[in-house]
Each structure stands twice: as structure tokens, then as C-alpha cells.
Amino acid sequence: MKLLVCVSKTPDTTAKISFSENNTQFNEAGVQFIMNPYDEWYALVRALELKEAQGGTVTLINVGPATNDVTIRKGLAIGADDAVRIDCDPKSSLYVAQQIANYAKDNAYDVIFCGKETIDYNGSEVGGMVAELLDMPFISYASDMQLDGNNATIQRDIEGGKEVVEVATPFVISAAKGLAEQRIASMKGIMMSRKKPINVVAPLEVADLSTVVHYDMPPAKAECKMIDPENMEELVRLLHEEAKII
């Protein structure tokens, strides 16, 4: 099995978010970065489990600058065999997907994994883009995946329930909670990761069709109105008359 796992770097879930240059740039100062949780906890771990069960290789791919190597090393420490970094600024989702697809097209991967979304851009689009560019099926929000030879049975999250689908390799899958159990890198894994290669590749020239031009903070919440616990009629009245939602 040749498995490719798309991994991105995101600010830690608890990071304080701020912007610079007239609110046009995310301010990275003092921000702790992590591997996007869906990529690390579920996509990567499920790929490693498949490799352990059936043999093969797990390659990480990241589109980003050299400072991302720290994040990529973490994935190698958890157990990936090697990594590819497309050396550029990940400008937009389509730009990123074009880089990934361009690399993947000559390498005949059986399954390409990504996370259901990045926790910074919340796009949930890179996986679908890669699938389209490679003319492969795409199964999003997978919370369970079993592979029997070349045939996969995948459970995916849909509104208010689950859907079970069958698909043959090669395909692209995006990982949601449940696909695997998070793993922690062992000391041995961390030592071994230092010897594993990160293959740096020059980007493909492609146009950038969408750009974030401005960031805003959400409007500040008005002070919370405290209601007397003995007077729930008052809460109902406020929801009806003031908030006008019931």
C-alpha cells in the first residue's frame, strides 16, 4: 500500500488570534503552532494502522515554508516513513491542492488522506480539490474505514447520522473524529524521525484565484444578562420579546 497523508500546520486550539498590517495578516508572534488535529490524530494514525496491517509506506506531504519542518518531523516521529514539502507559501486552497496533486500524480498512491478541515481556515476543500485534479473518488468526513484488498467500506458523517459507502482504491478520504485513536510519539520515534528524509520540492507555478484581503474580530458580545433562577418566566419573556427567537 502506498499511502499519502496531507498535513498542514495550524495555530494551537487555544492560541490567541490577532492580526497585523491593517488586519490583513495573521499575527504569528507568540503563537504556538501544531499539526492540524484531524491530520495528526485521525488521518495519519489510520494510515499507519493500514501500513502495520498490510505493509507499505506512509508519506507525509505539506505545502509550506521551511519553518513547517518542525511540524512535519512530529508526523515522522509518530511513524510516517518519509515526507515531502513543497517549498512555498500556501496561498489559497486551490493553490495548495494543485501542488499536492502535481506531486501525487506520478506516484500512484492507493489512498490519499487529509483532515476534514484545517482549524484555522475551516475550508474542508483541499481534499475534494486534490480528488478532482487526480480524477479520483472523494469520501469526506470519514469516521470509520475498513480495507479489504482494494475495496474500502467507509462510514461518513452526514446531517443527523451516518452513511456507509463502498469504493475501490485509489481514492481521497478526509478524516473526522472516530477514524482512529490519537497516538503520542515515543522517545524512539522521536530519535528515529531525525534520520527520516524530508524531500523539499519546488512549487508548480499556478495562479492564485482567491485571497483573504481582510480579517475582523467578531463583534463583541454585550454583557451577559443574569436571570433570577426563581423566575424562568422572565427568561422566556426575554427570549420572546427582546431576542425575538421564540
Partner: peptide, 13 residues
Amino acid sequence: VFSGKAIAEIEIS
């Protein structure tokens, strides 16, 4: 964006 901690304005060209 940022799981609701900010809002991004996106220009599509």
C-alpha cells in the same frame, strides 16, 4: 475562520 474566533473577507478574482 479560526473556528469562529475571527472573520475573513475573501476576494475572488
